[in-house]
Design a binder for these strands. Sequence first.
DNA 1: TATTGTTATACTCTATAACTATA
DNA 2: TATAGTTATAGAGTATAACAATA
Lengths: 150, 150
Amino acid sequence: MKRTTGNTIIHGHLPQLLGYQLRLTQLAVFKDFSDSVSDADITPSLFAVLVVIDANPGLKQTELAKAVHLDRSTVVSAIDKLERRNLVQRKRVAGDRRTNALQLTNAGSTLLAQLTLEVSEHERQIAAQLTQTERETLIQLLSKVSPESR
Amino acid sequence: MKRTTGNTIIHGHLPQLLGYQLRLTQLAVFKDFSDSVSDADITPSLFAVLVVIDANPGLKQTELAKAVHLDRSTVVSAIDKLERRNLVQRKRVAGDRRTNALQLTNAGSTLLAQLTLEVSEHERQIAAQLTQTERETLIQLLSKVSPESR
DNA sequence: TATTGTTATACTCTATAACTATA
DNA sequence: TATAGTTATAGAGTATAACAATA
């Protein structure tokens, strides 16, 4: 029970816990994301929103919410933010006046193209300690733990 | 550029991104943590704080902050919370009146023992899709990405 | 001068619940 | 009745900056 004499802090059994390693890794990855992406106002979540809209032009907000695991109300402010910056548009849908069809503006497409490059570089950074095979294994094992990504 | 006819949402290149899989997995893991741990007021962070104090009785708040990757000011409120519940004690240190020596109370040790069991079960749950080898590989790969855990 | 703990404060992210307009 | 989007609101978690006590 006595304290180790030096300054070394012991992490107990935390390092063997998946949840703990996940938290640490996510902290490191988020920090590097901000450092890597030139547009300071784009967070990982907003990037994901842009990617999903790009891959599914015309989708509605509720669909987007489900895809990126956010609440409908959270999506409203995300889209507000992106629309204010002219990156995304809400378009009227013929036949159902309750829903909005989301699509990227030209500016949005342009920014996404640039972000995609920067995020690739960011991914290279964070996986720098891994071989290509290890990186793929890691992604595959993560997706087995949370299978709802597709 | 046309929308897939059905309801299927495409995630673009997100599933191949480490950062994205990490976020999804962490979401799933946090949710299961709350479901698994009977004490609703213990979060993953507070659990980590308890473990580190248990493994390093007498450590000071600044050391704890570094160990769990939180700011000093954040640790203050974490310890406030735990001290209010009589799980942790701030003890005076002979020789340096600026610092507090942190230690678990008996109640804290008892709770931690129970939490440890519940967290083990939680870990089993989240790794249910993995073999034992895969789980170990996953932990090892994560720790290679963020090596500051020890 | 530097460090420790603290406080005050503010920001980000998120969800819940209630509202409206449409279906 | 049910659904889509919205609003108001609140909570959790976090950090920054300034401060007092002590080294």
